[in-house]
Write a protein that binds this DNA or RNA. Structure first.
Lengths: 246, 246
DNA sequence: CGCATCGTTGAAATCGATCAAAGTCGGTGG
DNA sequence: CCACCGACTTTGATCGATTTCAACGATGCG
C-alpha cells in the first residue's frame, strides 16, 4: 500500500471559490483543480471500479476518504422493499467519504468504469487536525451542499415531472460550465433512465416521456441516447422554474 | 442594542454528543444545553415574533445569527407560482443563520409566538475565527444535517403519503426524546395541516386523511388537534419504513 | 447475427390532488 | 353565558398526473 503521510496534502486549494463544490450526505464531494488532482494522484492509493461495481454499501464502516479521478458514480439509499432513491451523482474531481458517523448511510456505485484514489480515514482526520483552515473549508463545502439538498427537496416535494427533468438537465449543464469555466450547450448522461428516475422521484417511463416532451417543445435535442444538446436554454430555465405551462 | 463581544460565547458545549443537532439548509440549527442557553440569553439581543410573523425572507442579506429560545418556526421556499416547500421546522434551542452565502435562500416564519436571541454575523464569524474548535463543531453539525436532508429526499422521492406522515411523527417523537433524554409517548404539532403537507410534499387534505388512517389502524391517537399520542410505536415504525401494507 | 439489456410508446389503473361541503374549534361580543 | 364568526380541519366525490402493465424498438456485445 503506497499510502503517504496525510500531512503532504497541503495542496488542497483552501481559498478556491469552489462554486462547483458538491458534497454528498455525510460526505464531501468536491471538485478539485487539475493541479491538486495531479498531486493527489501521487499521494493516494489508486482503485479501479468497473461499471456497476459498488464502491461501498450502506452499513460499511467508514474507513477511507475518496477522490474520483475519472468515470462517474451514483449514490443511493434503498427502502426495505427495494424502492430506491438516488441522492446524488459524482463526477471526476469530486471528493467523498468524510463522515462524522461510523457507517455509510448509503451505497456508492460506479456508473461507468471509474478510477479513484483513496486515503485512510484516520490519516485524513489527522491531516485535518493539523491544518485548521481545512476545517473551515469542509464546513463551507457542507453548507453549499446543504443549499443543494434544500433545492432537491423543493424539486422532489413540489415540482412536476417535466420541471424535475428540466431542473436536472440545467444542473448538469451548470455543473459542466463551472468545471470548464465557459458556456456549454451540451452535456452527457452517464447514468441510465432508471438512475435519473430514481434521482427525480419518478419512473423510467415518465423520464422517457418527459424527455420526449422537452424535445418536442424544442428545448433540447438528443444527439445520442446519452448526450443532450440544449437548444432553448431560456425555455428550459422557465420550465425548470415552474413556468412551463399555466 | 445590547450586543456584546462574540468572544464571550465560550460556553458553547463543543464536546457535547449533539445527537439532537439540527441544521437547516445554509444554517446551523442546534439544540443547546440549558446552561449554555442561559448564558446566551445574557449575551445576545432578544427579539419577539408573533405567530405568522416572518423572521426574514428569501433574499434578505445574512447579517445575523439566531437562537430560538421559545416557540417554533417553519422554514420554507416558494416557487414562482406559489407552490411551497417547507424544508424544516425549528424548535427551542435551535441555532440558525450561519451561512457561506450573502443571502437567505429561504424564509423563516414563526408558527407561534416566539422568542429568540441574535448575534451579528460578523461578530459570530470573528468568534468562530478565534475559537478553532467551533469550526469542527459547525462542520460536524452540517454533516448531521446532510444526513437528515438525505433522509428527507428518500421520504419525498419514494415514500407513500402514509409512510411520510408516519416518518414525520417518528421524527418529532425522536427529537423530543433526544431533548428530554427519556422515552416519550406523545408530542405536539405546533404547525398547521398545511405546513405539514408542504413539508411532506402532500396536500392538507391528504395529511388529514392519512392522519385518520394512522388513527384507525391504532397507531396513534389525537389527544387534541395539535397533540398526538403514539399508541403503537412498532407499528408506526413499520409504517414509516415501508412495511405498512404489501 | 442473435440475444440481452435498455429505452420508448401505448393503454389501463391508481394514488394523491382538486373541488366541494360539512364539521370543529377558539375567540369575540352581545 | 352563549351565539356567532372566521379560520382551520375533516370528509366526500371526482379528476388527473404519474404509475403500472405490456409490447415494441434500439443498441451494444459476444
Amino acid at each position: 500500500m503506497s499510502y503517504k503521510p496525510a500531512g503532504e496534502l497541503t495542496e488542497l486549494p483552501k481559498g478556491h471559490p469552489c462554486e462547483e463544490c458538491v458534497i454528498r450526505p455525510i460526505t464531501i464531494c468536491r471538485r478539485l483543480d487539475p493541479r491538486t488532482l495531479a498531486n493527489l494522484r501521487a499521494l493516494g492509493s489508486p482503485q479501479h471500479l468497473q461499471a456497476g461495481q459498488p464502491m461501498f454499501h450502506e452499513g460499511d464502516p467508514v474507513k477511507r476518504v475518496f477522490m474520483l479521478a475519472s468515470g462517474s458514480l451514483k449514490i443511493y439509499t434503498l427502502l426495505a422493499d427495494g424502492r430506491r432513491q438516488v441522492t446524488g451523482f459524482m463526477f471526476p474531481g469530486d471528493f467523498l467519504g468524510i463522515s462524522v458517523d461510523d457507517e455509510y448511510a448509503f451505497t456508492a456505485e460506479a456508473l461507468s468504469d471509474s478510477e479513484l484514489w483513496w486515503f485512510s480515514r484516520q490519516a485524513f482526520d489527522a491531516f485535518v487536525e493539523r491544518t485548521p483552515d481545512v476545517e473551515r473549508e469542509l464546513y463551507r463545502l457542507a453548507a453549499h451542499e446543504l443549499a443543494a439538498a434544500q433545492q432537491q427537496m423543493v424539486l422532489l416535494g413540489r415540482k412536476t415531472a417535466a420541471e424535475r427533468l428540466a431542473s436536472f438537465f440545467l444542473m448538469l449543464l451548470e455543473r459542466k460550465e463551472r468545471v470548464s469555466g465557459r458556456a456549454e450547450r451540451r452535456f452527457d448522461l452517464p447514468m441510465s433512465r432508471l438512475d435519473i428516475a430514481d434521482y427525480l422521484g419518478l419512473t423510467k417511463e415518465t423520464v422517457s416521456r418527459m424527455l420526449a416532451l422537452l424535445r418536442d417543445r424544442g428545448l433540447i435535442r438528443l444527439e445520442t441516447q446519452d448526450r443532450v444538446q440544449v437548444t432553448d436554454r431560456p425555455g428550459l430555465e422557465e420550465m425548470a422554474a415552474g413556468f412551463g405551462e399555466v
